[in-house]
C-alpha cells in the first residue's frame, strides 16, 4: 500500500452497515469516514478530499441516486470513484447507478474478497487519473486545466479583454553559443522558475514558451479584475527576481542576465487552436502583436518594460509609467504611444 492510506467515505443510513463496511475497509488498510445520508455525505465531500465513495442507494433525505447526480455537477468531485453497495431490488436500479456514473456495484452483504478487488482497481484508476492531471498541469496551467474540465475541449475562440505580456532574455543567442548546452538549459530552468513565480502570483498564464521567450495572458481563460495592473506588477516582480538572480551570477563570474518585457491591453480572441489531437490555449489579435513588438523595442529604447497606452490608462497608479513618445514598430503602420515602466 502507498505511504498514506486511501481515504474512503462510507455512506449508509443503517448503523450496522456503516460499522461493517468501516470494519471491512479498515481491515484492507484504508481509512474510513462515515455519513448517514446523502446530505451529510455532500457536506463531508466539500470539507475534505476523499479517494473513493462507498455509496448506499436507499437512504432518507438524499438518496444514492441524488448523490450520484450531485457529484456529476461539481467539477472537483466529478472524478471521484463511486462504488455503490446496496441490496436495492431490481436490475433497473443497478443500471441506473452505472448510468449515473457509478464505477461499480456490489450487492450487500458485501463480499470481502470482491470488495478488496473492486476497491484496489477503482483506487488504481483514480491514481492514474490523478497522475494524468498532474502531468497535464505540468504542460498546461491549472487555469487551462480547470477551463478544460469545466467547459470541455473545443477548438475555437471567444473575445476576451486581456493584457498580453511578452518577455525574453537580451542577447540570449550569443550567450547560449558561448557556453555548453547543459549550462544553457540550467540557466533557462532557473530563469523560467523565477518568471513563473512572478506570473503565477499575479494570476497570469503562460501560453507559449519558445527558447527564452514567454507569452503570458492576464485575464483569460478566467477573467481578472485588473489585468493591466496584474501584468505590470508581474513584470516588475520579474525584474526584481532577475536582479537577485544576477547577484548570484556575478559571484560565480557569469554575465548578468537582462530581460525585456512588453505589455499591451485590449480585446483578443482566446481559445484552443490546433487540431483535435494536438491543440494549445492561445490568443491572437493586434494586441498580441503589439506586446511582442513593444518587447522587442525595449532594446532600442534601452528600458526594461514597455507598455501601450491602454495598459497605462488602466493602471491605478501611473506615476512610474513614463511616456517615451510615439514609436514606430515593425509591422505596425501607425506610430504607437509607448510608456516605460520604472522600478521604484
Amino acid at each position: 500500500m502507498a505511504e498514506t492510506p486511501a481515504r474512503l467515505l462510507i455512506v449508509d443510513d443503517t448503523k450496522v452497515n456503516r460499522m461493517l463496511l468501516t470494519r471491512n475497509v479498515e481491515m484492507l488498510g484504508y481509512h474510513a469516514s462515515v455519513a448517514e445520508n446523502g446530505n451529510v455525505a455532500m457536506e463531508r465531500l466539500h470539507e475534505e478530499p476523499f479517494d473513493l465513495l462507498l455509496l448506499d442507494i436507499e437512504m432518507p433525505e438524499m438518496d444514492g441516486f441524488e448523490v450520484l447526480e450531485a457529484i456529476k455537477l461539481i467539477p472537483a468531485l466529478r472524478d471521484l470513484p463511486v462504488i455503490v453497495t446496496s441490496s436495492v431490488e431490481g436490475i433497473d436500479n443497478i443500471v441506473r447507478c452505472i448510468e449515473l456514473g457509478a464505477d461499480d456495484y456490489l450487492p450487500k452483504p458485501v463480499n470481502q474478497v470482491l470488495l478488496k478487488a473492486r476497491l484496489s482497481s477503482s483506487l488504481e484508476k483514480k491514481r492514474l487519473r490523478d497522475e494524468q492531471k498532474m502531468l497535464l498541469r505540468r504542460f498546461a496551467t491549472s487555469e487551462v486545466v480547470e477551463d478544460l474540465q469545466e467547459s470541455g475541449f473545443a477548438l475555437g475562440g471567444r473575445r476576451v479583454h486581456v493584457s498580453v505580456l511578452f518577455c525574453d532574455i537580451r542577447g540570449f543567442t550569443p550567450l547560449s553559443e558561448s557556453q555548453p548546452p547543459e549550462e544553457t538549459i540550467e540557466l533557462l530552468n532557473a530563469y523560467y522558475s523565477l518568471m513563473f513565480e512572478a506570473i503565477d502570483s499575479h494570476g497570469g498564464i503562460v501560453t507559449m514558451m519558445i527558447g527564452d521567450g514567454l507569452m503570458v495572458l492576464f485575464g483569460a481563460p478566467q477573467p481578472l479584475d485588473d489585468s493591466a495592473g496584474n501584468a505590470v506588477a508581474a513584470a516588475r516582480d520579474m525584474l526584481d527576481l532577475m536582479e537577485e538572480f544576477n547577484v548570484g551570477r556575478v559571484v560565480i563570474d557569469k554575465p548578468e542576465i537582462k530581460i525585456g518585457i512588453g505589455i499591451a491591453t485590449g480585446e483578443v480572441i482566446a481559445g484552443y487552436a490546433g487540431t483535435q489531437d494536438r491543440a494549445t490555449y492561445t490568443c491572437i489579435g493586434d494586441k498580441v502583436n503589439l506586446a511582442a513588438r513593444l518587447e522587442a523595442h525595449t532594446k532600442v529604447a534601452n528600458c526594461s518594460i514597455l507598455i501601450d497606452d491602454a495598459t497605462r490608462d488602466a493602471l491605478a497608479d501611473q506615476k512610474n509609467a513614463e511616456a517615451i513618445g510615439d514609436v514606430l514598430l515593425k509591422g505596425i503602420s501607425e506610430p504607437v504611444a509607448a510608456f516605460s515602466v520604472q522600478q521604484d
Binding site: 436507499e58 437512504m59 452483504p109
Partner: peptide, 17 residues
C-alpha cells in the same frame, strides 16, 4: 410509502448481514 419501503429495506439489509 417511502418510509415503509426504506424501513423494510433496512431490516432486510441488516438481516442478510
Amino acid at each position: 410509502l417511502d418510509q415503509f419501503r426504506r424501513a423494510a429495506h433496512s431490516i432486510k439489509s441488516n438481516a442478510n448481514v
